[in-house]
Design a protein around this nucleic acid. Sequence first.
DNA 1: TCTCGACGTTGCTCTTCCACAAACCGCCGG
DNA 2: CCGGCGGTTTGTGGAAGAGCAACGTCGAGA
Lengths: 231, 231
Amino acid sequence: MPKLDESLLTGLPPFSRLDRGQIRQILDQAGSRRYEEGTPIFREGHDAERFYLLLDGYLRVVQATRDGEEIIVLHISPGQLFGIAPALQRDTYPATAIAAAETIALSWPVRLWDTFTREYEGFATETYRTVGQRIGQIQETLTELATQAVEARVASAVLRMANQSGRKTEEGIEIAFPVTRQNIADMTGTTLHTVSRLLSGWEKNGLVRSTRKHIVVTDAHRLVLLSGAKD
Amino acid sequence: MPKLDESLLTGLPPFSRLDRGQIRQILDQAGSRRYEEGTPIFREGHDAERFYLLLDGYLRVVQATRDGEEIIVLHISPGQLFGIAPALQRDTYPATAIAAAETIALSWPVRLWDTFTREYEGFATETYRTVGQRIGQIQETLTELATQAVEARVASAVLRMANQSGRKTEEGIEIAFPVTRQNIADMTGTTLHTVSRLLSGWEKNGLVRSTRKHIVVTDAHRLVLLSGAKD
DNA sequence: TCTCGACGTTGCTCTTCCACAAACCGCCGG
DNA sequence: CCGGCGGTTTGTGGAAGAGCAACGTCGAGA
């Protein structure tokens, strides 16, 4: 395993209060791996053996229903911890994590968790802040799903991805990882067909531009209108 | 303020590893209050000044949408901590808590949070376990909302309440707090009308019995079938 | 006891969106 | 270069469930 550079972690919230020595220590205990697009990193219900940090790429966190469908609960962007079941006293992962694009992640065995929270100042604090934010996000998705019409939900989902992973280009905001219509359907609890129609419609009206697995939001403002207060 | 009895806390998970002296200490710092049915205990977005323990009664945790609708995210039963924003490094409450029935709760100012987690063994651990469980619950609701038909969602919601707060009676399992059709609609993202129709239908087929604000599940088994794998 | 208001029921209409179907596009491997 | 496959587009019914409306009923307070 090649030695990992310390600059990888400096500046990331969970490690921001640590000195070089501590970061070195953490890195020396880390495993590092590359995941191809579509590869699962861990699966719902499996024993939580490691916890992770996403260095590069994007993840989909997915939950399966009894009848085999799966829905996307949230996305994870670089710099975030994930698979942090031990923080919540769980011994299995509550959901499946899948690489949405080519991805690199560090990981540590769960037995180090207690050491991390004890020895490294700010680590626990920042972790729980992340947990809090995720709960907020999920709750928001929940209310949206419960109250909004399909078009608004799809608009929100697209905007959320754009905000989370957006790259500014001349044309607009580009979603940085591959997304299929089916993926969006899985985020919004609708079908591939409906999503396709909506995106086609928006493209006709100049709100977005899209090619396969690739979406650029060209008129975020009007999309926000669609997603929210109708009028 | 009358002195609170120590037996209130012994046996509850967050305090189970503490001795009498510690429990006495905790109680002496607690505020105790009664809330009438329908009273909010705290509101979404307000400064998180205290954290709470539900002694008796039931709570609805509610989130409001931009357009004034509100949906019920989860219920809280006696013995659980709630309003634990500080555990997640939040300084405002992420949702509104409303008494679903006459309720009694203890509370402490947030500045004691750090003391509690530091001094009282098992308190932090158990709290985070609760958080983990709630996330699991919300995620489940989310997938349900995204994939299941209305009838299945309503069935699940009723079953969830029955399991959480069920009292066995001769007739079946009785939900221990008042629930209106509108409440169920708010849990499942549907309308009062649809819920009313469904309950009427079920009553006709002997799955439930209901009077106003009051539901008894008389055939849990068949209700489970409705809630899950169709056939 | 009467009245009022909250809660619940039911029928009808209308919209939304899903299911099914058929075909197309563009990328990848042979 | 060609075939195949995954991803996408588009059209057409049809059914689920929302919205509207009107009425019934229970309980609390004057």
